[in-house]
């Protein structure tokens, strides 16, 4: 198993974004509403943070219409998974 190199990532670090990445790291995709409810923020706040993660290339946003309702799902990209794993490794290094 390859050890993850600890690396502090300022994009991942902000509390809402860290929580978003933490949820997405454990799944393939998660509904926007489920992320919002788990993180405990409003739609607009979540959208803002998702946009920042998307711009960094860490999150992919998918849209699908199911039963005439549009559903938005979020997933971590490969780069996002790597950045999150490195950031968690850094947090663990700091806590010793």
């Amino acid at each position: 198993m390859t050890a993850v190199q600890p690396r502090f990532d300022p994009v991942v670090h902000a509390p809402p974004r860290l929580q978003i990445c933490g949820l997405l790291a454990a799944v393939d995709s998660m509904e926007f509403a489920a992320v919002r409810d788990s993180v405990g923020v409003s739609d607009s706040v979540l959208s803002k943070h998702v946009k920042q993660l998307e711009e960094a290339g860490y999150v992919k946003v998918g849209k699908a219409t199911i039963a005439s309702r549009q559903r938005t799902s979020l997933s971590l990209t490969k780069d996002g998974r790597a950045a999150f794993a490195a950031h968690v490794a850094e947090l663990r290094r700091i806590t010793g």
């Binding site: 502090f8 300022p10 670090h13 902000a14 509390p15 809402p16 860290l18 929580q19 933490g22 949820l23 454990a26 799944v27 788990s38 993180v39 968690v88 850094e90 947090l91 663990r92 700091i94 806590t95 010793g96």
Partner: peptide, 28 residues
């Protein structure tokens, strides 16, 4: 205003890890 810092101390790092763990427990 939210923190956009580039470093974190030991207590803050522990709190971040605990928050991540809580999120995963909720999914579980």
């Amino acid at each position: 205003m939210e923190s956009e810092g580039t470093t974190t101390d030991r207590a803050a790092a522990a709190a971040d890890l605990a928050a991540l763990q809580a999120g995963r427990a909720g999914m579980a």
